[in-house]
Design a protein around this nucleic acid. Sequence first.
DNA 1: CCGTAACCTTACCTTAACGTAAGGTAAATG
DNA 2: CATTTACCTTACGTTAAGGTAAGGTTACGG
Lengths: 152, 152
Amino acid sequence: MALRQVAERQAESPAPARLYAIGDLAAELGVTHRALRLYEDQGLLAPRRIGNQRIYSPRDHARLVLVLRGKRLGFSLADIREMLDLYEVDPQHLEQLRATLKKGCARIAALERQQQEIALTLKELREGERLVRDLIRQRESEAGQGRKRRTP
Amino acid sequence: MALRQVAERQAESPAPARLYAIGDLAAELGVTHRALRLYEDQGLLAPRRIGNQRIYSPRDHARLVLVLRGKRLGFSLADIREMLDLYEVDPQHLEQLRATLKKGCARIAALERQQQEIALTLKELREGERLVRDLIRQRESEAGQGRKRRTP
DNA sequence: CCGTAACCTTACCTTAACGTAAGGTAAATG
DNA sequence: CATTTACCTTACGTTAAGGTAAGGTTACGG
């Protein structure tokens, strides 16, 4: 069965649905096979199978991008899973829609808080930076002045 | 030795340097004794001692606040330690000043990236929110219309 | 058709960041 | 003065997020 072949042939094709073997996806986004399988166990990804080999769709690719972003932001896999599930809502069921909306709003609020805290931290660090720059300037000019004053 | 007493007396006093026993600080900032001792082991805090009991100063309190903020932002204790160390610089040594500046700038850059990613995530989530709201409205009005149309 | 490269599962190992329990000292309180 | 109460250290347990190793199948290239 041409499995890897299919992926490679599709890799050259212009637009139509690219497919990835696990190694391809791992390489492209800089993660290990292990991580991908773990994310699958945790319900973050659900690649199709051919036989028992995983086939990742562009959709899986997109989800993985979100997963990695979530990780960089310090979220747990469980959190990330919840966030991904927000995009999975079934438009038929009003109750589910409402639940999704609620969770989504909570996430948004949390991220806004986080944003505030980052802003605060940045402000402090920048102030520190200014201070240190001043100290450096001062030290440097002292050294210069010292030489000049002693030999006017 | 009046140790806890001192803390309690100072707790009532208006401004002057409040002191905390471990339990006080833990309660006030919502962490456990264990966490405080761990942070100490990792070099994030360095309370004074009286005998072998820890005495936390307002400075320790402030540092702990920063630690907890760092945690909420998803940083490791090691990262947080590095950030705290930025505020500890000795103004005498030019080389150290320069190193501090460099590390500080790196931190700032990292936080700015993080900020971008949060902004992006927020944008996506808000778009999702709008979509879900629309779906809900649609479902609701469908239900209403259904009744009206069937009984004109 | 044979070897090697990519994939599979299972299972144990590791690190960070605590939780929790055990056993012991100091000290404020009835 | 006896007893809780707060604190101490030591040490083992736990959870999340993978790393790593072992052993086995599939598929592809020469």
